[in-house]
Structure formats: C-alpha cells, structure tokens
Amino acid sequence: MSRRGWFSLILLAALLLAALLAPWLASQNPYDLATLDILDARLPPGSAALDHGGTYWLGTDAQGRDMLSAMLYGLRISLTVGVLSTLLALTAGVVLGLLAAWHGRWVDALIMRVVDIQLSFPAILLALVLLALTGPGVSKIVLALLAAQWAYYARTARSAALVECQKDYVAAARLLRLPTWRILLRHVLPNCLPTLLTVAALQLAAAISLEATLSFLGLGLPVTEPSLGLLIANGFQYLLSGRYWISVFPGLLLVVVLTSCNLLADALRQRADPREAGR
C-alpha cells in the first residue's frame, strides 16, 4: 500500500483509539449534566472554569460544555454510527448481491430491480424521510443509514461475484458438489473483498457525513448526546456573532475523519486496480 494509504490507516486508528478512550482522555463527561455549569456557557478557547480549576482549551458551548470533551465524545458517536451502519449495510448488501449473482434469473432480476429503484433515489432523501418518521436516536439513524446504503454494496458484490462465478475454480467447486454457502463464503467472497473494501471505506465516509448532515437538519440524534454534526449545528446560531469555536472545531475534526476514510479508500482502490498503481 502507498505511503498515503499507511498514513490514513494510522490516522484512522488514532481517531478510533481517541474515541474509545474518550472517557479517560476527556476532562469532563459532557453527557453528565451534573458536571456542566451554565455559568460557564460560551467561554472562548483557553478560558478558566469559574468554580473548579480546569481550563477550557477549545472553549465551551451554550450549555457550558467543554468543547474538547464534547468533541471526543461526539467522535465516539459519529464513529459508532458510521461503523455500525457500514457493517450492517455491507452484510445485507453482500448477502443479497451474492444471492443475485449465484441464482441469476428471477432472483437476480427482483433484487436488482429493487436496487435500481433505490439507487435512482438519493440516499439523503430516503434517510431524511425515514428519520422524520422514526424520530431521533442512535439505533434509528443506524437503521436509516442501513436502508440508504445497502444497495451500493449489493450492486458491487453482484458484479464482482458475477465475474468470479464464471471462473474455472467455481465451476470446479460446483462439480465437486460443494455446498453453495461454502463456495460463496470460502471462494467467491474472498475474491470480491478488495473491491468491497474500497466501497466500504468510501461509504463509511459517506455514512458519517450523512449522519452529521441529518443531525444538522435536526433529524438525527438527541441534543444531550451530540455527535460531531450536532455540535456543529448547535454552533450555527453563534457563528454570526463571532463565537466561532462552537462549530469550527468540531467541523475540523469531522473533516479529518472523512479525509482519512477517503484517503484509505483511494489507497485501497489503487491496490485493487494495478493499472492505477503507476502514479
């Protein structure tokens, strides 16, 4: 893998670690209301807290929440939502895609028609309508993202599997009368994996970005447990009055997360497609 690829991988690992260790890294639990103090609201970066000795390095939001702590916890939620929905959508998409490729005929036609219909409709609108229906919540947004993204994986898995299924080793496995699931899981799937991983890295970025967007529109997560997107949204009304830190810092962190996902996707693609490797 390229240097850029390794760099993005290390960055992503560091972000994941920061999210995992948020309770130990953060100076405050921003979701525990007892630790917030309304008298500390909207302090600029570097301010000292009123009653306890701490310093708010990145300032505080409208509830007196330490921005740095809120961002670490927000990162945790954003990554949880992104990774969870990606894994679920990947699984659902791969199962349906393999099924379509293996069975062919009406199963293929049915699944791919549904995929076509779904892909003709932008993911954001689908997720938006679903969330307007279910209300905010982590599980609900994961569900909405799953519904919005499975079709991409199904299409990728199907076309990759179709290529594999025509290869000799699959024909041989069929002759040996190996069980279908075994051929698919042990032989076809591993060969489709590089393409699928590239799509997954891209879609992970898309999922995290989509969650942030939906939270920004007020349809994503509850206010007391803000993700990065919600933190940005909460700062919107203060932007014009010069309290930039409430939305600028979480935004920068979000950009770092998305960029490292996309960098990784780029590197994976170059690896999967040797013709592109020459650059």
Partner: peptide, 19 residues
C-alpha cells in the same frame, strides 16, 4: 437543557428530549 442541568444538581437526574 439548562433546567435539566440544574435539577441534576439537587439530585433529580434529568434527561432531555426535545422535538
């Protein structure tokens, strides 16, 4: 949110839901 914060301080653990 602010009222939830204030209630939590006297021992009433308050959650917030806004719609």
């Amino acid at each position: 949110q602010t009222v939830a914060q204030l209630l939590t301080r006297v021992g009433i653990q308050a959650k917030v839901e806004t719609l």
